[in-house]
């Protein structure tokens, strides 16, 4: 592995002092789980001069519900700890499902949702779930913090809007809408331990005691250079009384938002069909969770 120096600040102030000296993109790289980074350094995809462990900083370990703001999920909170948090299990089902799909148990015990987002792979399993829950990303650096919608975070495969001297502090998941449910499914050729050929998260909110859709969110992974929302399908669903026909039409509409490539994992046609199937299945899972089976 290429040589680098290692530092482990214990406070935000100490971290910002280290980041203040950074000028070149990629010169410093934070490490949380390391499950992507170490492999990337070994294979030469990334070559930081400094690897900065941010897990000793208390703010990075925050997992806290704040009334009126939502759930603060710090950069260093592992997938395992995220999925075990009762509020995530109750109110952010798709996030919990994503946590259980990222790599193996060994990976989930180290890797974090924020790390999965910051690594910015188009196939990242947590991102569609973050998108349907309208997560925002809090970046921190010597010039302070800034908060941007997760939807605006990605700029390309492995790339995002963070500056060379910024790291992701946390994501914030706003309170889910009333009477809502979210689910994530991906397709892989194996049962476990693979990268999504396509992944879809949906969130549905229904008027009480009915199948009238008051809010729909659909997000797609692995079918474009960055994860995307399927906004046409969302708009199509909102305000409608959900029926089998409507669900099927929405799934077909979601395909219009996908711009996949053909590669070793699947062809364009196959991936588009997966978007349709996974959208329909996750919408039905949401209805099921809301006791409104069709």
């Amino acid at each position: 592995m290429k040589a680098f120096s290692f530092t482990a600040p214990t406070t935000i102030k100490e971290m910002n002092e280290i980041l203040a000296n950074v000028t070149t993109p990629g010169e410093i790289h934070p490490i949380v789980g390391g499950t992507d980074l170490i492999e990337q350094v070994k294979t030469g995809r990334r070559s930081p001069s400094i690897v900065m462990d941010i897990k000793q900083i208390p703010e990075m370990n925050r997992l806290e519900w704040v009334s009126g703001e939502g759930l603060h999920l710090g950069a260093a909170v592992s997938c395992t700890d995220t999925a075990a948090f009762p509020l995530v299990q109750e109110s952010y089902e798709s996030i919990k499902e994503s946590c259980g799909l990222i790599g193996s148990v060994q990976i989930q015990n180290r890797a974090s949702i924020v790390g999965n987002i910051a690594n910015s792979a188009p196939s990242a399993d947590s991102v569609p779930s973050g998108l349907v829950h309208e997560a925002s990303v809090v970046l921190i650096g010597p010039s302070g913090t800034r908060t941007i919608p997760l939807e605006d975070f990605f700029t390309g495969p492995g790339r995002n809007v963070s500056k060379p001297n910024e790291v992701v502090l946390e994501i914030i998941l706003p309170p889910p809408p009333n009477n809502s449910s979210s689910h994530y499914l991906r397709f892989i050729p194996r049962n476990e331990m693979d990268i999504a050929v396509a992944g879809v998260a949906t969130l549905l909110s229904l008027a009480p005691g009915s199948r009238t859709c008051t809010k729909a969110r659909i997000a797609l992974a692995s079918v474009g250079p960055i994860p995307v929302r399927a906004k046409a399908a969302e708009t199509f669903l909102e305000g409608k009384d959900l029926t089998n026909d409507i669900i099927e039409k929405a799934a077909e509409t979601a395909v219009e938002s996908a711009s996949p490539i053909t590669d070793v994992r699947g062809s364009i046609e196959y991936r588009k069909n997966l978007v349709k199937v996974l959208t329909e299945n996750t919408l039905r899972m949401c209805l099921n969770s809301l006791n409104q089976n069709l």
Binding site: F6, I38, Q106, I107, R110
Partner: peptide
């Protein structure tokens, strides 16, 4: 095991 949880020791730095 790291603090009782299974992890891949190839994906962790000794310094951590």
């Amino acid at each position: 095991m790291l603090n009782g949880k299974a992890i891949d020791s190839c994906c962790m730095l000794a310094a951590e």
